[in-house]
Design a protein around this nucleic acid. Structure first.
Lengths: 189, 189
DNA sequence: CGGATCGTTGATCAACTTCAACGGTCGTGG
DNA sequence: CCACGACCGTTGAAGTTGATCAACGATCCG
């Protein structure tokens, strides 16, 4: 049962009985996606928040030259959506696609509001989730401002060695903000 | 009374009586800093969260070449700290400095925990604050990945015209991740 | 007045991109 | 089971963006 993973994760952040936790996860829907399947398209309304219980997703958009740019990955225990669109229930500029066959829990904006109203403890959970996500976004910005692209790659490789294995190189390149060709050149050293 | 600004801001996000709101803001301390004064130093423990009620702060660090890099500004109604260090009550790698003479409300990590325990409604408030902050960090990352430095400057100038006026140019340059010289060249056009 | 601070200018240089071509691998259909 | 094409990584040459460095000007303030 893949909801167990979410239940555990919530339980690790807030103090609640198993009964309450299982009520909470009942607000979520279980969905499976195979590799390359699209969960969210540009131009469509972003009204779902995803929790990855197995597999890997990525969030990307097309820049003005038509290149795909990956800005986020999400693996097990991570949350993903186009947060900007989700917050205002608006149209998204992004795509979300499965990098691997993935199992995902999803919740609609409406149901999330309902969940937060019914279980105010969940405000704390999401406060923590956003806090961590914000912290890591800032860390990423700091890296971008601090290091050359070469160093950024090395840092990433050292910090997330499993990621390098799991995700094709051109996605890594896109995520780190450099071209596949240049990444290839860096790797030679 | 500068706490009024915070009170209003909290009131705009969560539904509470004036009485409760004024209890909430009583957890904060009022502090004033003059231009260039330092609120947080690298190497010191980051145990305070700041809310700007008047003025402007910036968060920066020194890169490996010894250049100051500004990663965040905070003006009225914004929260600022080294969130990574604050979360784990750890040592900071950043400085926070007043760009202008500023009035700030501060709260220690301990008191924030106390506040959240005493007024669980505040979890919602901070959930929203982090949600917005995270959204804007992602937007910034998207800009960095999408546009040339020239375009980033133009976007910034169009989106935050008052900022350009208020903050010296070399800080803008640092924040946008380009050199003052290059920014100068861009402006010529 | 004199110094510190900030913005500007132009020359040189390095980091990184772009483009075009090639080679390997994997999966699918014949 | 083989052959083909799609997909992905690699290579090298040429081109661009933006950084660096040094010098000069302007302004502000004590």
């Amino acid at each position: 049962m893949t909801k167990l993973r979410l239940q555990k994760h919530i339980g690790s952040q807030i103090n609640e009985t198993g009964v309450v936790l299982s009520q909470i996860v009942s607000y979520f829907e279980n969905e499976c996606f195979h590799k390359k399947e699209i969960l969210l398209s540009e131009g469509s309304n972003c009204n779902k928040l995803f929790f990855v219980s197995k597999g890997c997703l990525h969030l990307y958009f097309y820049d003005s030259l038509g290149n795909k740019k990956t800005t986020q990955f999400a693996i097990e225990n991570w949350w993903l959506t186009d947060f900007l669109a989700f917050q205002k229930e608006g149209v998204s500029n992004f795509y979300i696609e499965a990098v691997e066959n993935s199992e995902v829990l999803s919740i609609s904006f409406m149901n999330l509001k309902k969940l937060l109203a019914d279980f105010p403890q969940m405000e704390k959970y999401f406060r923590i989730i956003y806090e961590i996500a914000y912290g890591s976004a800032l860390m990423r910005l700091k890296y971008i401002y601090s290091y050359s692209k070469e160093d950024i790659y090395f840092k990433f490789r050292d910090d997330f060695p499993d990621f390098i294995q799991r995700v094709p190189q051109y996605l890594i390149a896109s995520f780190l903000g450099l071209t596949p060709e240049y990444l290839s050149e860096i790797k030679k050293k």
